[in-house]
């Protein structure tokens, strides 16, 4: 098991307080080489805030984050250089740059040409530029955007924008990739493609953390799942453990009705006692869901 090796990324007692609001309370988490870690939790639980703390966008009120034992600075640019890349919940591409240019910006930290070289476009400069282009095109192909390199980011369909954001993050040669709701707004086919893509990314040796609301997606993807509720880590463990934990179910019931319904469908069997809405779920459906999840393990 991976758990025996030293973690790639470790968060220790990370807390974040905004004014009077505690968005994160002493969250500790470990991510191991080759792992896909799922982070779930109701809206406003602090998942995105946690990512912001990991990547240096926020300076945690307390606690520390280490990458391979080295403490990460609280400066997003340096965190990226150190090897942690991310995508954003509400896509943050560079809208009037082309897809290729977006990925090339991702290469920025791994290129060395300074202003003088950029001015004269000498042979070394050109070699570096050609390398970056080649690598970027490879990445575009890897995420499935082949042939779209000249398209402006803002003109891409939604799903492609999410994929482009992943390619851009991968261009920074990360050791750890943080994905904030990578399938939000995708249809089932796209979601499945995204799942395969994340497996493929893991297979290239990048450890991945995924935030998602779609628990079915998370349970079928991740080796390890952490549940964040009101800024606290409620449960962590393998998907099987988390799925069966009554506290998780309870926490999820604190959410708005539409989502309760969606979750309850997932847990129809265990949750039969909790509310009347469970009755609306189709048991056959849920059983099937759970089957496929088990199968992919």
């Amino acid at each position: 098991m991976t758990a025996t090796t030293a973690p790639v990324l470790a968060a220790r007692d990370v807390s974040m307080v905004f004014g009077g609001l505690t968005a994160l309370a002493e969250v500790s988490l470990e991510l191991h080489e080759g792992q896909i870690l799922g982070l779930i939790g109701p809206n406003g639980a602090g998942k995105t805030t946690f990512f912001n703390c990991l990547t240096g966008l926020y300076t945690p009120t307390k606690g520390s984050v280490t990458l391979r034992g080295d403490r990460l600075p609280s400066d997003p640019a340096r965190v990226t250089v150190a090897g942690v890349a991310r995508t954003f919940q509400n896509i943050r591409l560079f809208p009037s740059m082309t897809a290729l240019e977006n990925v090339l910006v991702g290469r920025h930290a791994r290129m060395t040409q300074g202003p003088i070289a950029s001015l004269f476009h000498g042979p070394a400069y050109r070699r570096g530029e050609a390398d970056a282009r080649r690598r970027s095109l490879e990445l575009l192909e890897f995420v499935g955007l082949r042939g779209l390199d000249d398209e402006l980011a803002r003109n891409l369909p939604y799903g492609d924008q999410r994929r482009l954001e992943i390619a851009r993050a991968l261009a920074t040669d990360p050791a750890v990739l943080l994905l904030d709701e990578p399938t939000a707004g995708m249809n089932p086919q796209e979601t499945e493609a995204a799942r395969q893509l994340i497996f493929a990314i893991r297979d290239t040796g990048v450890a991945v953390v995924v935030i998602e609301h779609d628990t079915k997606f998370i349970f079928s993807l991740c080796d390890h799942v952490s549940v964040l509720v009101q800024g606290r880590l409620l449960v962590q463990g393998t998907p099987e453990v988390v799925r069966g934990d009554p506290r998780v179910i309870e926490a999820y019931l604190g959410k708005p009705p539409e989502e309760v319904e969606a979750e309850v469908r997932q847990y129809a069997e265990e949750a039969a006692h909790s509310t009347g809405t469970a009755g609306t779920a189709d048991p056959a459906d849920s059983a099937e869901d759970l089957d496929t999840e088990g199968g992919s393990r």
């Binding site: 990547t55 640019a77 890349a85 560079f94 910006v105 930290a109």
Partner: peptide, 15 residues
Amino acid sequence: IAVREDEDAARAMGI
């Protein structure tokens, strides 16, 4: 250009 388009995202790209 990245800074112009989205400064936070640019920083997240190591700029």
